[in-house]
């Protein structure tokens, strides 16, 4: 059962993702034909609270997972008999949320006698580009920017990920959410700051860009967050009701995007790797995409980013990387556990 046997060669793979906000399931015909891709967003629930509420998250995953998986099978017009392998996000993420998906995957695997693979959520983001109709060669520089992760990798092969640097404190998306909250904007903060920023002056405020000498590929957004919040609080005190929200949003966004692009380009230059692939929820940010396009073009670096739907949390990317793990015989047993932090 471990290897993709001839009996399984025409079988599909079922991907399940429950690491944070979204309960998601997808059916994929290896290597890249997405037959269905169902995402049940919990953002409506969370927006009342200014963030993801993990305790609610696990409860909602429990409520959603049966119909989300069922819909993924129906949308793909397949039954469990057509599935050869179940791929489940094993980490990193919220432990209570991950457990729902992994337990569900284990149950299907055990009762149907199917292979089970555990997928690293961040690696799946790095692999998502392979679901696009693009020609991409290893190695490439992979940049993941989301609510829970900010990291740069060298991706040397489909299962070979070398971490170059990551955030020392807050993730970029977390900084967006917290700044948005102080500005009195609703959750999630990223899209709203991005929208407001288009009307603001990115040079009105110069917020700090953290450059870390000893570990130059690492990120730090905590000092930026504090600086922005201090600016907002001071303005709220000195000129209440007249805080230049759009200018703050634009200046803050510029600082985040600037430092991410700068470090990715430095990684490309230092390693001599001429391809950069961006992914993760914050990759939907237009300014970040535009800045990458602009600066990569100027340096002759090839830049790629999957379509928005594949950048945000989804199960198609879990199924896609799961298919490669399955092919390489990297299955997990029923005793496998989830993990909260990256490896």
């Amino acid at each position: 059962m471990a290897f993709m046997s001839s009996r399984n060669k025409d079988k599909f793979i079922l991907g399940i993702e429950t690491s944070c906000d979204e309960t998601a399931a997808s059916v994929l015909r290896p290597p890249k034909e997405v037959l269905s891709d169902v995402v049940s967003s919990q953002i409506d629930v969370h927006s009342h609270y200014g963030g993801v509420v993990p305790e609610l998250a696990s409860r909602h995953h429990l409520k959603n997972i049966v119909w989300v998986v069922d819909k993924a099978l129906r949308d793909a017009s397949v039954g469990l008999d057509d599935i050869g392998c179940v791929a489940v996000t094993q980490g990193p993420g919220l432990v209570g949320a991950l457990v729902v998906g992994l337990s569900f995957g284990k149950a299907i695997s055990a009762t149907r006698g199917l292979a089970l693979v555990g997928v690293n959520h961040v690696h799946a983001h790095l692999h998502a580009i392979f679901l696009e109709d693009v020609h991409i060669q290893f190695p490439y520089i992979g940049v993941i920017v989301s609510g829970g992760h900010t990291a740069i990798y060298i991706v040397r092969g489909e299962l070979d990920y070398e971490l170059l640097g990551q955030t020392r404190d807050d993730a970029a998306g977390e900084a967006f959410d917290k700044v948005a909250k102080v500005l009195g904007l609703p959750y999630p903060g990223g899209p709203i700051i991005g929208k407001l920023a288009t009307q603001g002056d990115p040079n009105r405020f110069h917020f700090p860009r953290a450059r870390l000498r000893a570990t130059p590929y690492d990120f730090s957004f905590s000092g930026l967050k504090t600086s922005v919040i201090n600016t907002i609080r001071s303005l709220q005190q000195s000129s209440p009701g007249d805080v230049p929200v759009a200018d703050i949003a634009a200046s803050f966004q510029e600082a985040v995007c600037d430092v991410i692009v700068e470090k990715a380009l430095m990684a490309s230059k230092d390693t001599g790797i001429g391809t950069i692939v961006l992914s993760g929820g914050v990759a939907s940010n237009k300014r970040l995409r535009d800045l990458f396009h602009e600066r990569c073009k100027a340096r002759g670096i090839s830049f790629m980013v999957p379509e928005r739907r594949l950048c945000t949390d989804n199960a198609a990317m879990i199924a896609a990387l799961g298919a490669r793990l399955w092919m390489h015989g990297k299955t997990i047993g029923l005793d496998a556990d989830v993990y909260s932090r990256g490896v």
């Binding site: 609270y49 963030g51 509420v53 990193p92 432990v95 829970g148 977390e174 909260s340």
Partner: peptide, 24 residues
Amino acid sequence: TFAIVHTFEGGAFPCVHADLYRLG
């Protein structure tokens, strides 16, 4: 903030670093 609870083994004794921000 994202994962709510981090645990650390490498110090003088085991430590837990938690953040209730998103729980409210």
